[in-house]
Amino acid sequence: MNLSMLKPGETGKIRDIEVRGSLKRRLMDMGVLIGEEVRVLKKAPLGDPIEVTIKNYNLSLRKKEAKVILVTTAAL
């Protein structure tokens, strides 16, 4: 399961980041770290990008980037 699959309002815990290099580095610099909780707030009016809350602030990213962030939800 990855971050782009979560619906607005849902929360997940980051399990892995499936990408290497500068994109991973950038994500980590923004606080997207393994074990971190992330909550999807909303989708943009045109469906993409999405807005999430992580480390107490709001971050937006495209679905393409959200796809590499693997999460587990509390329900599972």
Binding site: L23, R26, M30, P49, N58, L59, S60, L61, R62, E65
Partner: peptide, 10 residues
């Protein structure tokens, strides 16, 4: 050239 969109919504 990679195009990424990772942006804070302040």
């Amino acid at each position: 050239e990679p195009s990424v969109f990772i942006m804070e919504l302040p």
